[in-house]
Design a protein around this nucleic acid. Structure first.
Length: 804
RNA sequence: GCCGGGGUGGUGGAAUGGUAGACACGCUGGCUUCAGAAGCCAGUGAUCGCAAGGUCGUGGAGGUUCGAGUCCUCUCUCCGGCACCA
């Protein structure tokens, strides 16, 4: 038999799969088991894929291939997240139009997927920058607009000076642009938003129904930041109005000795008395000079200024001063807080400015009580109330609902939930995105472009260099729009949509990527969705994964979907580090290119090694040495065919292979690919010890290995004279009878220490077993005439003796 | 500060409360070879011992249990996320 030559085998079988359309998505019939298994669709970057990128794609491919063989109907598609900043920035750098560079990169990505034997159904391919696709992105914008969920407003926004565009909050990471790392500045601009805050509650609550990593769910919960508390009104002395504050700590209300409002608060001007005018003005000026980073720097000094006005604490009836301080944020809660001795920031400000404080809370263990009473230190935990009238002696938790109720009767407070989440800013001052399907009349009135005129296509000849203005503002002809009804000349919106808008619904389009009269086919979507298994990186936790959930809920509310969560199960891959244990990067020179690995070891070795390296979800370094072990394994699988010498398996062979079947089947289902591969190596080691093996057994082994190493198994399968494709063979079942060993090794523990091992027939009774144990020489030595106080027999596992 | 996830040989990593270190890399010795490579066989947690065998061992300290890497309490440390959010 010829030696194992991956260079010959792999292209051969890839061609055959392709020619036979082997992985075409089947039609679903009633009663079919389906699996929609999806990767986060990638941005086709000019750098191509490295071995780290291949990890999730290989994992989903293993699951998809195994599922097909198990008789499930599988939808396993791939598409391109081709609109957006990265593609446009690449275009600017290279001077090539993003449409052209994207098309080229897609071909390269497809080549890399194909050479790795990934079994996508390319009939389902889609591209978010294709007008036939973004026509429906625009349609969805209109749907949101009509439902009151898309609106335009003036406000402070995040601006990236390098990318020359605004960004959503989710796309600012640590004060920096998520794309280029430039420090983001605040600007006052009129922009388009999606009202994701309307869905804040549901976006949190429905997380409980999802089979997602805890980490991602926690990140979404933190990001949405629901906090349950109360709104309390503080009537202003000498005004008819009141200041409303939001608090989660109404238990400290009796100690509320001053109020603080944000510098942006609308009442700042009317509350500032003439005597305080100068102080307030200079404070406000100092605040505007600080950028956002300085203002949110934790180490910075806590500062504030007195307005000169007073409000009434609704609990005590006392008049308390109203201050302005920049640590109070205009956009959170009501932009105002009441301040007391049980908050570190309030405490610090009061001490510094000489504002009176009053302690009303002590820790339940009484620790540091004197220091807290005398205001030497600040206690900000949950405790027991004092000096709080009828609420004295209650715990913080007990007091809160009662104080709310007490004030609610007087109309001065009510329960309130606030969120950290802010609306999704979706307009971008960039070229390479879906144009926002809006036109403005002479008076600035907004009009949706009628559906029959979608898509609003990008002009071919536009300048796409960023200038701070949307590049489309320069497309004079394109901008001109004539309203078909009135014949009036309007101007098109020149901002484009955030690329994350395109990716918020693509999973709905995969069943029917070419559909021309609808965004998606409700019937097929109903059959295939939700996505059963969604695999990608954790970096999208509060971006794509949040936006896609929001869109799904909107479409559910619109009656277009029957489910309100798009992704039933989510898995995150761990990062593959370079051999030097550092993150792979061009500058470190530690990037491993799959093309090189495929050429040297073959796609099967690459795939099986990626799966073998370690648990799917954890970070792990690439080992140029380690991959050799997997190549050796495949060579030994190849060589094992020389031992095939009979039709039907021996009992010993059956025990090995049926046990393996159970293990591999379960491990693939549980995403434990590393132990699946290890168990196949183990089985190979055991089979190698047998004189001969059977053809049936060998074929069973090939089928189990096929999802991991599809090419070599196809080759060996056909060498055994099998017709058809191994990739489409029926997945084997296992017979429990073969899982039972006929001999069992019993470790014997004496006082918890392993002292002996006994090999006995599996059907040995407990009494017989104990007789054998007691007769064992080593056991006798350790008993040495002592009493056995207790004996424990765990059937099939061990014997434990307690000796006194 | 809050939330989430880790810490097991020289390395990557295995272990439904039941033989810690499967599987693989690396290393050591042997066979094969003119030689090397490859392959095959044996060994490989630490420590004491010629050996049989003993002792120790899953970040640390306690606890539950006949038995703990696994469960409980406390603690150290690393990684990721959020953070003047009232």
């Amino acid at each position: 038999m010829a030696a194992y030559n991956h260079l010959e085998i792999e292209p051969k079988w890839q061609k055959r799969w392709n020619d036979e359309n082997a992985f075409e998505t089947p039609l679903l019939k009633k009663g079919d088991k389906k699996l929609y298994i999806l990767d986060f669709f990638p941005y086709p970057s000019g750098a191509g894929l490295h071995v780290g990128h291949m990890l999730p794609y290989t994992a989903t491919d293993v699951v998809a291939r195994a599922a097909r063989m198990q008789g499930k109907k599988v939808l396993h598609p791939m598409g391109w997240d081709a609109f957006g900043l990265p593609a446009e920035n690449f275009a600017i750098k290279s001077g090539v139009h993003p449409a052209l560079s994207t098309a080229k990169n897609i071909l390269e990505f497809k080549r890399q997927f194909s050479q790795t034997g990934i079994s996508y159904d390319w009939n389902k391919e889609l591209n978010s920058s294709d007008p036939a696709y973004y026509r429906w992105t625009q349609w969805l914008f209109e749907l949101l607009y009509e439902r009151g969920l898309a609106y335009r407003k003036n406000g402070l926004v995040n601006w990236c000076p390098k990318d020359q565009t605004v960004l959503a909050n989710e796309q600012v990471v640590g004060g920096k642009c998520d794309r280029c790392g430039t420090t983001v500045v605040q600007r006052e601009l009129k922009q388009w938003y999606f009202k994701i805050t309307d869905y804040a509650d549901r976006l949190i609550d429905d997380l409980d129904t999802l089979d997602w990593p805890e980490q991602i769910k926690a990140m979404q919960r933190n990001w949405i930041g629901r906090s349950e508390g109360a709104e309390v009104d503080f009537p202003l002395v000498g005004h008819t109005e009141a200041i409303t504050v939001f608090t989660t700590r109404i238990d400290t209300l009796f100690g509320g000795t001053f109020l603080i409002i944000a510098p942006e608060h609308p009442l700042v001007e009317s509350l500032t008395t003439s005597g305080q005018k100068n102080d307030v003005a200079s404070y406000l000026e100092a605040v505007t000079l600080k950028n956002d980073l300085e203002r949110t720097d934790l180490a910075k000094d806590i500062t504030g200024v007195f307005t000169g006005s007073y409000a009434t604490n609704p609990a005590t009836g006392e008049a308390i001063p109203v201050w302005i301080a920049d640590f109070v944020l205009g956009h959170y809660g009501s932009g105002a807080v009441f301040a007391d001795a049980h908050d570190e920031r309030d405490f610090t400000l009061a001490k510094r400015m000489g504002i009176p404080l009053k302690a009303t809370l002590l820790p339940s263990d009484g620790k540091d009580a004197e220091a807290i009473r005398s205001l030497e230190c600040c206690f900000s935990g949950q405790g027991i109330l004092f000096d709080s009238q009828q609420f004295d002696g209650l715990t913080s938790e007990e007091a809160r609902p009662r104080i709310i109720e007490w004030l609610a009767e007087k109309g001065l407070a009510r329960k309130k939930v606030t969120f950290r989440l802010r609306d999704w800013l979706v307009s971008r001052q960039r070229f390479w995105g879906a144009p926002i399907p809006i036109a403005y009349d002479k008076d600035g009135g907004e009009h949706l472009i009628p559906e029959n005129q979608l898509p609003v296509e990008l002009p071919d000849d536009a300048q796409f260099l960023p200038t701070g203005q949307s590049p489309l503002t320069l497309a004079i002809d394109w901008k001109r729009y004539t309203d078909p009804e009135t014949g009036q000349e309007w101007q098109r919106e020149t901002d484009t949509l955030d690329g994350f808008v395109c990716s918020s619904w693509y999973f709905l389009r995969f069943p029917t990527p070419g559909l021309s009269d609808k965004a998606f086919d409700s019937e097929l979507v109903q059959e295939w969705l939700p996505v059963d298994m969604y695999v990608g990186g954790a970096e999208h936790a509060v971006m794509h994964l949040l936006y896609a959930r929001f869109f799904t809920k909107v479409l559910f509310d619109a009656g277009l979907l029957s489910f309100s969560e798009p992704f039933a199960t989510l898995k995150n891959q761990g990062m593959i580090l370079g051999p030097d244990h550092n993150k792979m990067s061009k500058s470190k020179g530690n990037v491993i290119n799959p093309d090189v690995v495929v050429a040297e070891y073959g796609a099967d070795t690459l795939r099986a090694y990626e799966m073998f390296m370690g648990p799917f979800g954890t970070e792990k370094p690439w080992s140029t040495k380690g991959i050799v072990g997997v190549r050796r394994f495949l060579e030994r699988i190849w060589g094992l065919s020389a031992k095939v010498n009979s039709e039907t398996p021996s009992d010993a062979e059956n025990r090995i292979l049926h046990k393996l079947t159970k293990k591999v089947t379960g491990d693939i289902e549980g995403f434990r690919f590393n132990t699946a591969v290890a168990s196949m190596m183990e089985a190979l080691n055991s089979l190698s010890e047998l004189e001969t093996i059977s053809k049936d057994g060998y074929i069973r082994l090939l089928i189990l290995l096929n999802p991991f190493a599809p090419h070599i198994t196809e080759e060996l399968y056909s060498q055994q004279g099998e017709k058809g494709l191994c990739s489409l063979a029926e997945w084997p079942s296992y017979d429990e009878n073969f899982l039972v060993e006929d001999e069992v090794v019993y470790p014997v523990q004496i006082n918890g220490k392993l002292r002996s091992r006994l090999t006995v027939p599996a059907d040995t009774s407990d009494e017989e077993l104990m007789k054998l144990v007691m007769a064992d020489a080593k056991v006798q030595e350790h008993l040495a005439g002592k009493e056995v106080a207790k004996q424990i027999i765990v059937p099939g596992r061990l014997v434990s003796l307690v000796v006194q």
